[in-house]
Simulated assay, not measured.
Amino acid sequence: MNSHSDTSSTDPIHHHLALDRIAHVTLRVGAILAQSGASVRVVHEGARMIASGLGVEVMGMRSGYASFEITLERGRATITRMMQIGPHGVNHRLDFAVRDLAVRAAAGGMTPDEIEADLDRLVRDTPRHPWWLVAIATGAACAAFGRLLGADWLSFAPMLAAASIGQALRHWLLGRRVNVFVIAAIIGCVAATLGGLGARLAGSGTVQLAMMASILLLVPGVPSTNAQTDVLDGYPTMGSARAVWVIMIMVFAVTGLWLAEFVLRIQM
Rank of each mutant, 00 (worst) to 15 (best):
M1Y: 07
S3G: 11
S3T: 15
S5H: 12
D6V: 07
T7N: 10
S8W: 04
S9T: 09
H14T: 11
H16V: 05
A18I: 05
A18N: 08
L19G: 04
L19V: 08
A23W: 09
V25K: 02
V25G: 05
L27R: 02
G37Q: 06
V43G: 02
H44D: 13
G46I: 12
M49A: 15
A51S: 09
V58H: 09
G60R: 13
R62A: 05
R62Q: 12
S63W: 06
S63Q: 02
Y65C: 02
Y65R: 02
A66P: 00
F68D: 00
I70S: 02
L72A: 02
L72C: 03
R74A: 08
R74L: 08
R76L: 12
R81A: 13
M83H: 07
V90Q: 01
R93K: 09
D95L: 13
D100F: 04
D100S: 14
V103H: 09
A107E: 12
M110P: 07
E114C: 06
R121G: 00
L122W: 02
R124S: 13
R124V: 00
R124P: 01
R124I: 09
D125Q: 10
R128D: 07
H129A: 10
P130E: 06
V134K: 11
A137E: 08
T138M: 09
C142D: 08
A143I: 04
A144Y: 04
F145E: 00
G146K: 01
L148T: 02
L148P: 00
G150T: 00
G150F: 00
D152L: 05
D152W: 05
L154R: 10
L154Y: 06
F156G: 07
A157P: 10
A157D: 00
P158G: 05
A161F: 12
I165M: 08
G166E: 06
Q167W: 11
L173Q: 13
R176H: 15
N179Q: 13
V180L: 15
I183Y: 14
I183F: 10
A184Y: 11
A185Q: 09
C189A: 15
C189V: 12
C189E: 14
V190G: 12
T193C: 15
G195Y: 06
G195W: 06
G196N: 06
A199R: 03
A199S: 11
A199Y: 04
R200S: 14
L201Q: 10
A202I: 05
G203K: 07
L209F: 07
A210R: 02
A210K: 01
I215P: 03
I215G: 04
G221E: 05
P223Q: 11
N226T: 08
A227G: 04
Q228H: 04
Q228Y: 06
T229H: 02
T229S: 06
D233P: 06
D233H: 13
Y235H: 15
T237L: 12
M238C: 01
S240T: 13
S240C: 07
A241K: 01
R242G: 02
A243I: 03
A243E: 03
I249E: 08
I249A: 11
A253D: 01
A253P: 01
G256D: 03
E261G: 08
V263E: 06
L264D: 03
